[in-house]
């Protein structure tokens, strides 16, 4: 972006919105919208507290566990679906259904089954993340050049060798895209899970802040979450681009 011949970085627009927010906030139109500067001060204040750190750790644990499960299950399932018509026919309708289903409605069910703890939150995270990972891995495997599969076969690759040495790599661009989208969904899952369970991690903080109308705290918390989600998605996007050189090579 260029204004009056001066190069302005993309992030500059954020500064504009922050200033606008500050002005509106200073007008004290609504308790819901405290001035931007207050939120930043609050953010710096609450982030180092033990309560926040604990909540952050719990969230990070649930997120990492959830995404790890989603990836380790999702990729093999997707690869299997891509390679076997029978498995594909059996699973595809379910995967598509869960991909578009309002999964939030399932969280109360998980709560009754698994209690108000980390288990439920991790499962929610998995449930949010796994389907897109499966679908993208499947698409990636379906896109593998047939001769590459024949090549592995002609050298008598075992199924395990073909999976680890050929299929996963050949489908890597799609798998990475699936992992990035899965991570974004996992962030949603881990937050929604905590909000609904509301006695652990950030869910408890949200509960605490909102029931006490601590809007500055609320916003500060949201900023932190948005920031991490953004960094995560960007980081994965970068990784994905590193492998793009051969995505174009395959066909």
């Amino acid at each position: 972006m260029k204004i009056f011949g001066i190069k302005i970085p993309m992030m500059a627009s954020l500064i504009f919105w922050a200033i606008l927010w500050e002005i509106v906030g200073q007008l004290e139109l609504s308790i819901l919208l405290p001035p931007f500067s207050h939120i930043i001060i609050r953010l710096v204040e609450i982030v180092p507290t033990k309560m926040f750190m604990d909540a952050f750790l719990v969230t990070a644990q649930c997120f990492l566990a959830g995404i790890a499960i989603a990836i380790t299950l999702g990729i093999p399932i997707g690869v299997l679906m891509g390679r076997s018509i029978v498995i594909d026919r059996m699973l595809l309708p379910w995967v598509n259904m869960f991909l578009s289903a309002p999964l939030t409605a399932l969280v109360p069910v998980l709560m009754t089954l698994f209690g108000f703890g980390m288990k439920t939150i991790i499962l929610t995270t998995v449930l949010f993340a796994i389907w897109i990972i499966v679908l993208d891995a499947r698409a990636g495997v379906k896109n593998i050049t047939p001769s590459l599969i024949d090549m592995a076969k002609s050298f008598q690759a075992s199924y395990w060798q073909a999976f680890t040495k050929v299929y996963v790599w050949a489908a890597l661009p799609e798998i990475l895209a699936g992992m990035r989208l899965g991570c974004i969904r996992a962030v949603k899952g881990v937050i929604i899970g905590q909000l609904l369970v509301s006695v652990v991690g950030f869910g408890r903080l949200f509960e605490l802040y909102s029931s006490n109308f601590l809007m500055e705290h609320m916003w500060a918390l949201l900023f932190v979450l948005f920031f991490f989600a953004f960094i995560l998605a960007e980081g994965l996007g970068l990784l994905e681009r590193k492998f793009e050189y051969y995505a174009a090579e395959r066909h």
């Binding site: 001769s147 090549m151 076969k153 002609s154 008598q156 050949a170 050189y245």
Partner: peptide, 17 residues
Amino acid sequence: PGEERAFVFQDFALMPW
């Protein structure tokens, strides 16, 4: 497929990675 045979592919079938 067997060890005593090897295939050379029209589109090379190399692993780009």
